[in-house]
Amino acid sequence: MQTAGTGAVFPGIFGAAAKSIEWRGLIDPQARLKAFEALMLPHLDAAHNLARWLARSAPDAEDIVQESYLRAFRFFDGYHGGDSRSWLLTVVRNTFLTWRKREERRLSDVPLDEEKHGIAPAAAASQGDTETLRGCIDALPPEFREILILREMEELPYREIAAIASLPAGTVMSRLSRARQRLEDCVRRKAAAR
């Protein structure tokens, strides 16, 4: 157990959406691009982190982020203020879902079975704490995984998580709690197997 300050590990992205940036009603594409970049590029790490945890593959995550930013720019009119990071992460999540559907169709007959992707306990036995945790997060069903990432890494309030994952706020609370329990069980199991 460590008690290192979270600020050192997690980028402080709170309040990154500069209030002074005016993006509404911009017609000139270059001006729109400038406003969009100012609002959304600061969240590139958050977008990548979420995509990476959801897709569990570095190259796929980069594709998803790339596509997400293009989609976000295309639908920039749909951003009506509020937390720009949440808005962007919503786009990332939706892009991931589209990507996964496409992948499933491409791989036909072989659905991306979440459980199959879990790391076998024997393989994880020799790994360090980080690898154990990573393996356990990866083994979580995606609806648990995304909520955990949004809360523990992006430190988003339940309200924002609910908006991103299009869930009622109460469901966020219960699902997050179950995700944590599952994760703890998994880590405990693996620690015991070591």
Binding site: V9, F10, P11, L44, D129, E152, E184
Partner: peptide, 15 residues
């Protein structure tokens, strides 16, 4: 556990 998670779980920064 929260602290452990935040300390151990890798945060994937964008290259």
């Amino acid at each position: 556990r929260h602290e452990q998670f935040r300390t151990l779980a890798p945060y994937y920064r964008a290259p």
